[in-house]
Amino acid sequence: MRKKALHILFTLLLMAGTAGLNALTLDEAHDILNTIDESRNLTTTDFSAVMTMISEDPDKGVEKMKVQQFRRDDKDMFLMLFLEPESKKGQGYLRVDDNLWFYDPESRKFNHTSMKDSFGGTDAKHSDFRVLSLAEDYKVTTITEGKLGKFSVYILDLEALNDEVTYPKEKLWITKDTNLVLKSEDYSGTGRLMRTSLYPKYTKVSGKYIPTVMIFIDDLIEGKKTQISMTNISTKTLPDTIFTKSYVERVNR
């Protein structure tokens, strides 16, 4: 009898213990996804930044591309102007009124281009710039706690809820205090690691956290990696004239 009571007590203790470890419930974890979405998507403000993209390819070597971004996400407008390399300086993509225009500063001419075209010859596609929604697209399946470098993190395993996403499974490393994503791993449906993303630097702009350094590692092709850094970040309202063809022409004068 005594033995049995002890056993129950022990079980209860054990349960309490695991509950204590699992400080986060699945619902709470899902809320984190919402927070991440909110802090990342700038649907209410304009956004401008200089994006530097350095791609390493074992075949092509190191290439650097610097682009000035202007975005007004709620109106689905953007302008991207090439700053580097010099050979592409001034070329621009202007998305406005469901049209995507390409501008060649050398001939000072615009032309239609398709959203499907790959962006500036890189792996990134125009369609990759659509609004992110972790909370809508994924559900959290497991939560563990761990360390990444010196940071205490929650490690969330996500599974896609629909077929809108590119990767059916993801793993996120999220700081415990401010819920910043430090690292994510993208998996195929068969559970194979395809891409690792690292976010070692953030900045806080008008209450939102924006990663300023991002590293994307292709886990299938050895030595293929892209690092992106953001500078000159601003969420100030941009003049409407920015999203016009004439601005693109004037800036190239």
Partner: peptide, 18 residues
């Protein structure tokens, strides 16, 4: 990754204010 996230823990390590 260890040295990438090797600075002191907390916001100040990775977040800079703009």
């Amino acid at each position: 990754e260890n040295s990438l996230f090797g600075d002191e823990e907390g916001d100040s390590g990775i977040v800079s204010d703009t």
